[in-house]
Computed example of a mutant assay.
Amino acid sequence: MQLDDTDRRVLRHYLADPALPRAELAERAGVTAATLWRRLERLREGGVIKAERARVDWRRLGYEVEVSLRFTLDKTDPRAFDDFIAAARLVPEVVAIETFLGRVDVRLNVIARDMGHYQEVYRQRILGLPHIAEVDALMLIATIKDAEALPL
């Protein structure tokens, strides 16, 4: 889908504050409310805007620990990826699953209330996932940049 300058301007302001009332968003983007509505609909229909969703601050809900777990799977079984991902989806503390090409096959982002809770999740749920050959953990210390916006 080709974007023109108006589309980029609408997207830039929309990404900056998706909860902004549409009239104010139109004003900031320099378009009429009708133009804004048409542009947003076209961007949705074209698959550029996939969904409007809430971004939850897990720390405010009592989850103080976030760990990125990187897995290398035992790929001797052709169902290794599918089995692993299906089982990982069932772990409530897993908030993201990503697959990769390279040394790391899958990354899970896991949240926990504290280190004791993380240890419980890791031992009882994560280590029981199928086809794990290697696992590496990276504990989140701070998020410096967390933007979904593109340089439009």
Rank of each mutant, 00 (worst) to 15 (best):
L20N: 05
A112N: 00
L36E: 07
T35L: 02
G46S: 09
R22L: 09
V48P: 01
D82V: 14
G62I: 03
F84S: 01
A133M: 11
D74F: 03
L36K: 00
H13C: 05
T72I: 14
R113V: 09
D136Y: 15
G62M: 01
L138F: 15
V104W: 05
R70W: 10
Y118H: 06
R28N: 02
G116T: 10
R44Q: 10
G47H: 02
P18W: 02
P18D: 06
L20C: 06
Y63E: 06
V65H: 02
D146G: 09
W37R: 14
Q2D: 11
A133K: 15
L25A: 00
Y14H: 10
L129S: 00
R103L: 12
D82M: 12
R59F: 12
L108W: 04
Q124R: 15
I141L: 15
L11A: 06
A80W: 02
V48E: 01
K75S: 07
G128V: 07
L3W: 06
F71R: 05
T99E: 10
V65M: 04
A86V: 10
T76E: 14
D77L: 03
R22F: 08
W58E: 05
G30Q: 06
I111M: 06
A133Q: 13
L150W: 12
H117Q: 08
E52Q: 13
A23G: 13
Q2G: 09
R39A: 01
L152Y: 13
A96P: 04
T99A: 10
R125Y: 07
L43M: 03
H13P: 01
A34D: 08
H131F: 00
R38Q: 13
A80M: 00
P92K: 07
D7G: 02
V106D: 02
V67F: 02
G47Y: 05
L40E: 04
T72D: 13
Y118C: 05
T72R: 15
R79F: 13
L36D: 01
E52H: 13
A33Q: 14
W58V: 09
L101K: 12
L61G: 09
A34P: 11
V121T: 10
W58L: 07
G116V: 08
I85A: 07
I144C: 09
A23S: 14
E27I: 08
A34Y: 07
L138H: 14
V31C: 03
L73E: 04
T76Y: 12
P130M: 04
L11Q: 04
E98Y: 15
Y122F: 15
Q2A: 11
V91E: 02
L11G: 00
F71C: 08
V48F: 08
R60M: 11
G62T: 02
A147K: 15
I49T: 06
E52M: 10
M139C: 08
A33R: 15
R123T: 14
E45D: 15
A34E: 06
R70E: 14
M1I: 06
E52S: 12
V135Y: 10
L90Q: 14
I111D: 03
D4R: 01
T35W: 01
R8M: 05
R89C: 01
A19S: 15
R103M: 11
